[in-house]
């Protein structure tokens, strides 16, 4: 096999071997020619530390290389490997098979996202809504370009938003959200949590602009506080709380 210069070769071609094994059911679907999802089953050996992503990669390497899955960091940092694992949105690289307590592991693409193929979904809507809420510090340009200007922040001010800055844009919250399932224009928990992250930042001057953006007919008010977004977030962001805190600003309880 020719090796592309500069690319490190992967040394994981030995199949996993263990006395324990699970049945991995992978949803296969290509919107171009399939009418419905089909499940393919594979018997995969696993160790205590084997993640669902590793099991899927095992399938790709030794049984069916056509399985479409998105991943990169393998350490819950890039937000690429979100999928529905045994009915719940999770990061495949952050979910150990042993913690699922089941002999059958079913993996499906995330809900509320258009499917590209198999487990890979389109992120355009998430990125659009994320971008829409202006996810950056808004200041007067002249202040920012000055070399000498510092924007100091106390630990208390930092605490107001630091939890919300952990978002890795994995989309699990949007996948779990019941409003996202029915309202195709809803801005979604991910973007709303990010709106709060910047509104609550003492260095930011874009609060009014941002609150105006989310104060529309498919904005913040369409959240029913189901709380499923916070339950599935792998980074402890708690979008549901961010949304309620944002509402506090809009109802005049916070300034």
């Amino acid at each position: 096999m020719t090796q592309i210069p500069g690319l490190a070769e992967e040394h994981t071609s030995t199949p996993l071997s263990s006395s324990q094994s699970i049945t991995l059911r992978i949803a296969k679907y290509n919107p171009v020619h399939d009418t419905e999802k089909k499940f393919m089953e594979f018997n995969i050996p696993y160790e205590k530390w084997t993640t669902v992503l590793e099991a899927i990669l095992e399938v790709k390497k030794h049984f069916d290389h056509s399985v479409a899955v998105r991943f990169s960091c393998r350490q819950a940092t890039c937000g690429s490997c979100g999928m529905i694992i045994n009915g719940k949105p999770r990061l495949a690289c952050f979910t150990k098979i042993s913690e699922l307590n089941s002999n059958i592991i079913t993996v499906e693409p995330m809900n509320n996202f258009p499917i590209i193929r198999d487990l890979a979904v389109k992120f355009e809507r998430l990125f659009d809504t994320h971008h829409k809420v202006k996810p950056y510090i808004i200041r007067d340009d002249t202040e920012i370009t000055s070399d000498t200007k510092e924007f100091l922040q106390s630990p208390e001010e930092l605490e107001q938003y630091i939890q919300f800055s952990n978002c890795i844009k994995c989309g699990l919250c949007n996948s779990a959200c019941p409003t996202m399932a029915t309202d195709s224009s809803f801005v979604g928990p991910q973007a709303l949590a990010q709106a709060y992250r910047y509104v609550a930042d003492s260095r930011d001057k874009g609060k009014d602009t941002r609150l105006k953006i989310i104060d529309e007919s498919h904005g913040i008010w369409r959240c029913h506080f189901a709380g499923s977004c916070s339950q599935v977030c792998p980074k402890g962001v708690d979008p549901a709380m961010g949304i309620q805190l944002l509402r506090g600003y809009m109802l005049g309880f916070k300034s």
Binding site: T182, D183, S184, S185, S217, R222
Partner: peptide, 8 residues
Amino acid sequence: VILLELKQ
């Protein structure tokens, strides 16, 4: 609100 969620 219900009807707005039903269709866009």
